[in-house]
Amino acid sequence: MQDSITVSTDPSVRYLLRLGDTCLVHAQRLGEWCGHAPIIEEDIALTNMALDLIGQARGILTRAGQLGGQQFDEDQLAFLREERDYLNPTLVELPRGDFAITTVRNLMVAVLLELLWTRLQASTDAEVAAVAGKAVKEARYHHRHAADWLVRLGDGTAESRRRIEAALHRLWPYSRELFQSDAIDDAASASGLGPRWAELRDPWLAVMRDALGAAGLEMPAETAFLSFGRMGIHSEHMGHMLAEMQYLQRSYPGGAW
């Protein structure tokens, strides 16, 4: 079996891994809908989105692998790290759940990424800025698509309403983690690599409030619960997801098609 790699603790690398892993893990969960979505059109829409996110992850992981004195390619970073070296927020690794869970999570993540990519277009790292320029258009569409579904589920049948409310209350506590600042954010902010995610909290809440309002839903109150995926401390679901995601590269090193 292929051995794990050890990733640099350089704050720029860590900052980019948080972003790249958010895209990668979110895409992995979205890809699980392939063949299982409630309708064929949405099956295609969800996997389109997953592919957009994989493309974004590739760009960011490629760059992360070049910094901090390391030389890892996107595949090594995507498939050969230990669980603790993945720095995605816990939100994206939670099981895909039903279509309501996916819709709420898609919206939460798309709004976050849209705000992040918008800021990252001005990154002092030219490669990150280039990825951001392309990704911001994709995130804009992901945002719209999820917001439109939110309205239809929130303002649909009694059953869709019950499910979307349950999904919102299940996922909301995981939003708090997104906007916690630490030394990694401080370093990125100081070097101009990218903004502290905490700076995006107010605009994120404003956009979410509008989207929820349009769907007749109330924004849940902030909870005391705090997750730590961005620190590499994950939920019990992460290991199972990685086992499936890494299986091929671990068993057949360098395998490609």
Binding site: I39, E41, A45, N48, R144, H145, D148, R152
Partner: peptide
Amino acid sequence: SLHAPDAKLALEMARDVYTR
């Protein structure tokens, strides 16, 4: 053609299904 609940989602689904 495709099935969709309303005009706006029909447009989005058309985008996802027919302009990939």
